[in-house]
Design a protein around this nucleic acid. Structure first.
Lengths: 193, 193
DNA sequence: CCCTTAAAGCAAATTATTAGCTTTAATTCC
DNA sequence: GGAATTAAAGCTAATAATTTGCTTTAAGGG
């Protein structure tokens, strides 16, 4: 289910990865993210600190991995019968989840790893969700924008504000972006080839 | 020039802040950002480590401050006689600067502070640049989009890809966004009130 | 089953960070 | 202008985090 490309993924390694990930999530819940450090996590997870340092390198990388796991969709987007409806429901859920301090921290944690892999994986998760909605709409015969258009003009502005704005994006903002989206720029979008 | 809201900004404090900031920039140039740590910076800057810990809290905050300083525009955008031209030149410069590994790291560093202030300040710098271009265009009598529209549909997609895409945005991508921008959605944009 | 080896445990050495106290120098108040 | 005041830096000792070398465990392959 996860990025277990480890050379020896059987049993113990996977067990420890799970244990550490779960421990981090629990500690974030109970103690808050600010107070986390490697020795604390190690003790709570019942492993030795050097295990964490050797597998993840540092706290930032571990938090990034845990945050990425949280961004992985657990289901296909709710189907409402129209692209517009699908987008509204999905974006509503996304904004609800991500405008909290916890949510914004998740995004930052993903980006705080020096490796770009996690950020890229996160973007791909989101794109997949959009693609499902677009494919459904296309099957219904709706005239649909490209997934690039969706990302450029709907998703990117929301993420930009989540990351950079002192006041997070709200539902009204998202709905206006959807409105524009459904009127203009259905296709012929840049694909950054 | 900077966020010197310190209660005692005279002489020494400012000197030390400058010295530390300069040292960080130099060390990033010469040693690379990965190898940086607080004791190293302190020694190179000729201060004691506890000074850095007390003023900045930790390395992430210091790097965030230095990165923010780099994002501060040193001049008004080049004036070309048209909004489109201004945008093209400015975005071209921005992309050239930010698509390098160093550039992308600057953005991430700004976001890696737990305080959102620096990210907000960064967004404001950029908005000011756009506002200058828009005001010029309005004075010339051009029909102009809102700065929100510019941020949502031109700048946000570029930043999104800088942060999340394994392959960074290129000039062609930016030009296509500008093209769309100049044709559709001149006004009535969401302002996230 | 045994052999090989990736990954975990353990402990010592190193390095980073914090905290208490002293000193310096910027600001304030005569 | 010259003390008095105090924010911020320096210094050092204590504490905590990280790295490293070696040992042990257990997964994967003959």
């Amino acid at each position: 289910m996860n990025d277990l490309k480890a050379t020896r993924p059987g049993g113990r390694s996977a067990r420890i990865q799970q244990s550490v990930h779960n421990t981090v999530r629990n500690l974030i819940e109970t103690q808050g993210r600010e107070s986390l450090n490697v020795p604390l996590i190690a003790q709570a997870a019942g492993v030795t600190p050097s295990t964490i340092y050797r597998r993840w390198g540092d706290l930032a990388q571990l938090l990034s991995d845990v945050a990425l796991e949280r961004m992985q969709p657990d289901a296909a987007p709710v189907s409402t019968g129209s692209l517009r409806g699908d987008l509204e429901v999905w974006i509503e859920g996304y904004i609800e989840e991500m405008t909290s301090d916890v949510g914004r921290t998740i995004l930052r944690d993903i980006l705080s790893s020096p490796k770009i892999e996690n950020a890229d994986a996160c973007a791909n998760y989101m794109r997949q969700q959009f693609d499902i909605m677009l494919e459904r709409a296309a099957e219904r015969g709706e005239e649909v924008p490209s997934s690039d258009a969706l990302i450029n003009h709907l998703f990117a502005p929301i993420v930009y504000r989540l990351l950079f704005a002192s006041s997070p994006p709200n539902l009204a903002f998202a709905r206006e972006l959807i409105d524009e989206m459904m009127v203009t720029g259905k296709s012929c979008e840049p694909s950054n080839s």
